[in-house]
Design a protein around this nucleic acid. Structure first.
Lengths: 207, 207
DNA sequence: CCTATCTTGTGAAGAAATTCACAAGGACGC
DNA sequence: GCGTCCTTGTGAATTTCTTCACAAGATAGG
């Protein structure tokens, strides 16, 4: 398949959310124009994004809401359940662990890990924090697909290496460092300081 | 000034971080190639990014690390101190409130707010959580530049409206909804479920 | 001073993403 | 059946972003 741009994937995720909204309101079909308006984009963009994966609509009518939802879920890989381990039970890690938004979308928490003896054994929601050293062993019993790293910057690369060694195929990195991982491992960075700086730039250079 | 792409601003933020690293190691000058290698990009990209704002380097020599740092801080608007209010003292909001990474970069917490009577009056680090209704009044006494919204999805638009009414010029939205704000207000969205879905896509469609 | 070696800054080329614009398919009323 | 009205899917055009490639400035060594 042709390479799909990151921005496209991002929009597909948004379309899925919008579709869920429209479905909740009982709407059975939707046009690319409606979807575009909802997402502050253009109808051509919507159609182009979808066209990479096939043709799902009916001319003159639009798209069936439930069907397009289903297609998008399949495209995005949300039909399978992904097992996610969270490494680093600081404030952010703990917050993510009990954030329901993930579970809703098929991301299931496989384990919570930390290095700090003071945190190991603590309960967070339904989970008990385990020693980071146990990650590899646990993952051997039941594979972990994605590791979310919420460790301090200094510990992030080591945590990433451990996660890769344990067999994860994707890493979501919250530490403000650039990780080095094998090309086979998908990596996404979330850096809140960076986002704030983006705002600062926008406020400093208006327009 | 010509419009600067988001991706450019993002890279500038990264360059600044790299420069800080190089400076900490005592390096006095740096070439675009070195900076590029550090950030997995190309030297031409680095030079082009910088060239939007002037010419800071010396041919044959490279850039002065401290000077380029200073220039980038000015460009990004990190020379002034930005006053940031956090609205919504759930887990994520509380985690952000005590995250030191912001303060380091000139983002100063102006106040913490929540609607929930059970949370109002609580102390988080050096701050006392105040009623969301007090936001406007507080902001009148001392202007707030940026509002970070960590409220539930259903409350986000209302919180955004209140923030805009209180005079903030930038909003960083953590709620998984698309906010509507006046064009004069800068808006950034951070959506962790979206990021995870991006990973799911990458794992489902390898390559 | 001259030559060899770097590295910047930037037009031009190339690639990628977005938007345009329209043929073609389907629904609906008459 | 026929005409009208919609809306998709997609090549082509356009715009935006990235990379190339090189003239020009700066340093260093002899």
């Amino acid at each position: 398949m042709k390479h799909i741009a990151d921005s496209t994937v991002r929009r597909l995720s948004l379309y899925l959310r919008y579709l869920e909204e429209f479905e909740a309101r009982g709407q059975a079909t939707i046009s690319s124009t409606q979807l575009a308006e909802r997402g502050h984009t253009t109808s051509a963009q919507v159609r182009k994004d979808l066209s990479f994966f096939g043709s799902f609509g009916k001319r003159g009518l639009g798209y069936s809401v439930p069907e397009l939802e289903k297609r998008l879920r399949r495209i995005l890989g949300l039909e399978t359940e992904w097992r996610v381990a969270i490494v680093g039970m600081g404030k952010i890690g703990a917050a993510l662990a009990s954030y329901g938004g993930f579970r809703q979308r098929g991301f299931r928490i496989a384990g919570l890990y930390d290095d700090d003896p003071a945190k190991i054994g603590k309960r967070i929601d339904a989970f008990t924090v385990r020693a980071a050293a146990d990650f590899a062993r646990d993952a051997q019993k039941q594979p972990v697909d994605i590791a979310v790293l919420t460790v301090p910057a200094g510990a992030a690369q080591q945590a990433a290496d451990a996660a890769v060694a344990a067999g994860v195929r994707g890493i979501m990195n919250f530490a403000p460092v650039q990780l080095t991982v094998p090309a086979t491992v998908a990596l996404r960075n979330v850096n809140m300081a960076l986002e704030l700086e983006g705002l600062a730039f926008a406020l400093t250079n208006p327009g």
